[in-house]
Amino acid sequence: MKLMDIYFSLKSDIDVVERRLHDEVHTPQRNLKKASTHLLKAGGKRIRPIFVLLAGKFGNYDVDRLAKVATALELMHMASLVHDDVIDDAALRRGAPTVKSEWGNRMAMYAGDFIFARSLVLLSEVPNVQVHQLLSKSIVSMCEGEIEQIRDFYNVDQNLRTYLRRIKRKTALLLSVSTTLGAMVAECKRETVHALERFGYYAGMAFQIIDDILDLTATPKKLGKPVGNDLRQGNLTLPVLYALQHSPERDVLRANIHRDMTETEAQEAIRIVRSSGGLEYAHRMADRYMEKCLHALTKLPQMEATRQLTAIAHFINERDH
């Protein structure tokens, strides 16, 4: 089963989410509207909405209720990207200029805040206290993760545990929340909610590790941003941390990673990481998370939605962009 087959099978419901996304970022403030719709027009995989919708298949499927959750979580994801681009001073996102580069830091921060606020307004329509409690705790954890990431920029002495905690908060948490809330809103059984929560978490961990690999291996055209962009910005990912520990040239790598890194130093650092075995190590780590992800699916009823989640898991681990 291909990813496009899954999109096609859910097309009418994904279209509901897409329309709601456009409706939610509408505002009479012209510049704010332009900035807020800028990233929306660039598209995206819509993994979070798909996770919400597929999780809902295991319970009482109501597209209106699920679309509210799916839209709200995608808006949160979009808001975090807008804020990330300000923090990272990023010029490109998905091959297009970022909100920050088009309108400046101030407008980007307000646009991110606006999108985030719209997501909360939409979620307030979901009459389930547990949904709001889970999401509130998750937002706190995500914010703490962002602060920790900023703290560790260019920190060549950080360890694996720090990295794994960071990507849990940065990526895995929102994917786990997507499957969990989809199941909760669909009134699934407790064991089903738990299995989907674990699936989302492990899929999210694998997703971010693959992202970190692609940052060092994919072409700029596929990435939509320069190769090694994370490294240049001081965000030291799993392959880099491995190289800092195991490469014969680790002392050179440590010397090259600093806030005033030149392009020559960045290219040298990327070469050392690629030759260190770090990429292979990261792939093995992603494979382990994917095994756990697929194991979580064995706890679910074997139906079409289970097969679709299995296909998405394989896509996450095998994608090239």
Score class of each variant (00 low, 15 high):
residue 40 L to Y: 04
residue 150 I to Q: 14
residue 287 D to S: 01
residue 18 E to A: 04
residue 276 S to A: 09
residue 259 R to C: 12
residue 292 K to R: 13
residue 127 P to H: 02
residue 319 R to A: 00
residue 262 T to R: 08
residue 123 L to C: 05
residue 53 L to M: 08
residue 211 D to L: 07
residue 203 A to C: 05
residue 59 G to H: 05
residue 249 E to K: 09
residue 100 K to F: 15
residue 294 L to G: 03
residue 244 L to W: 05
residue 179 T to W: 04
residue 166 R to V: 11
residue 319 R to L: 06
residue 297 L to M: 06
residue 285 M to G: 01
residue 202 Y to C: 00
residue 134 L to G: 14
residue 276 S to K: 09
residue 41 K to N: 14
residue 150 I to W: 15
residue 65 R to V: 08
residue 212 D to C: 07
residue 249 E to P: 12
residue 9 S to A: 10
residue 281 Y to K: 10
residue 295 H to G: 01
residue 135 L to P: 09
residue 206 A to P: 13
residue 160 L to K: 15
residue 27 T to L: 14
residue 273 V to E: 03
residue 228 G to P: 14
residue 255 A to G: 05
residue 9 S to T: 06
residue 146 E to D: 08
residue 195 A to L: 02
residue 31 N to T: 09
residue 27 T to R: 15
residue 141 S to N: 12
residue 31 N to R: 14
residue 3 L to S: 11
residue 140 V to N: 15
residue 304 E to G: 07
residue 218 A to M: 14
residue 78 M to C: 09
residue 9 S to P: 15
residue 17 V to I: 02
residue 53 L to A: 05
residue 99 V to M: 07
residue 215 D to K: 13
residue 222 K to V: 14
residue 98 T to L: 01
residue 129 V to I: 08
residue 105 N to H: 06
residue 241 L to T: 01
residue 5 D to T: 10
residue 208 Q to R: 01
residue 127 P to M: 02
residue 143 C to P: 13
